[in-house]
Write a protein that binds this DNA or RNA. Sequence first.
DNA 1: TCGATAACTGACTACCAGTCAGTCACTGAC
DNA 2: GTCAGTGACTGACTGGTAGTCAGTTATCGA
Lengths: 216, 216
Amino acid sequence: MAVAARRERERTARREAILDAAQELVAAQGYHGMRMDSVAEAVELSKGTLYLYFENKDALCAAVATRLLDTLIPFMESALENTSTGLDAVHKLFQKYSDFTQENPHHFRFALAWLSEGERMDDSTEAFQIYRGRVGDMLSLVVASLKRGQADGSIRADVDPLPQALQLWTSFLGVVMVGLNREAMAQRVPVPMDFEQLVPLHLDAMVRALSSEGAS
Amino acid sequence: MAVAARRERERTARREAILDAAQELVAAQGYHGMRMDSVAEAVELSKGTLYLYFENKDALCAAVATRLLDTLIPFMESALENTSTGLDAVHKLFQKYSDFTQENPHHFRFALAWLSEGERMDDSTEAFQIYRGRVGDMLSLVVASLKRGQADGSIRADVDPLPQALQLWTSFLGVVMVGLNREAMAQRVPVPMDFEQLVPLHLDAMVRALSSEGAS
DNA sequence: TCGATAACTGACTACCAGTCAGTCACTGAC
DNA sequence: GTCAGTGACTGACTGGTAGTCAGTTATCGA
């Protein structure tokens, strides 16, 4: 009996070790650059063993991303303290989100890959269901702040919180996607541009769009 | 002499045939799903021959995307007719862009792949330089309309046209990225949502943010 | 002591972008 | 007419990577 418990602990520890290695490699090489062989080597296991812990590469990455979202969500929640209005809260939530993507660009790239080329990613695994749930939790923070803003009058009354939260999130994704690759983007986009400005500019636009002041 | 001219014509025709095949396959299978072997088979050439016309897969895809942008730009320009104000023009430009992505989702996926995982894409080829130029032309339309809007008073005077055009474009990319995969997204994003609403909602937010009415 | 079980291994398959030595067909000079 | 030169084309091959699976090893309980 105690044996089973110990085995369970060992299994969990090994799983965490794999996640640590995968996370580090994704951080260094990006989602596509991360190789299952490299993960195996890093944890001193054979590649086959990885597949005893994760169904496939995508599931492993989803598990890494889930662990990161477990950090992001409390981080975003901390932004809600000392907010004067719901509108202010929305602004600060996304500010935190932006900070997080700067610290964890690899996580963001994974999320993007999932959203943009999802057809090629196997999201039928349990790991993905859990990940999906976390994304929902994150979006709920935005929805709640939008409602709060409508209650305190800082956000237009005709805003529909759920669709608007998705609009905020998805548009933000696009901006951060480009801002994240700003070094490469400077050569890539054929216009002179300081990409540092982009996120603040977008947040400002979002606040203006939501604000009850000057509403039609 | 005439031989050289004929050879040149034949070469161009073959190049176009390859582009046609590649475009169709990218449309059907997506950027990642398109196989160089499939393109070769479709044009009844060996794979090696493709590499006499295009440096690599990415360059071929960039050439496909360039051809599509050659269609998009006049299409967007046509939106400028019968626009009452610069603000209205910006709105209609993006509306056309949205329409185009619905018709040519594959092109958009390629652009996304380029922007989001650009490190892994070889964008040093000539085909990419040309593509970059087209993206710049497209953005110029937005910049010009923003300036027009400031001149006619429909857009806030404190908007900096070039950064704002990038903010509009990049945020739009995020929204369209999600909207494009709305079938998959319905299961993927853990909230009930009619993704058809998303683009109009975003355009509305952008117009509100740019509008000189109610400006602080 | 030994059969059962879980954990692990690594050589293997399948797949795909890109390469290159060699073939083929046409051309123009002689 | 011949034949060397040239450009177009070929397809078997390389290299790299995700995922598989038959077999090995270690540990456990009876």
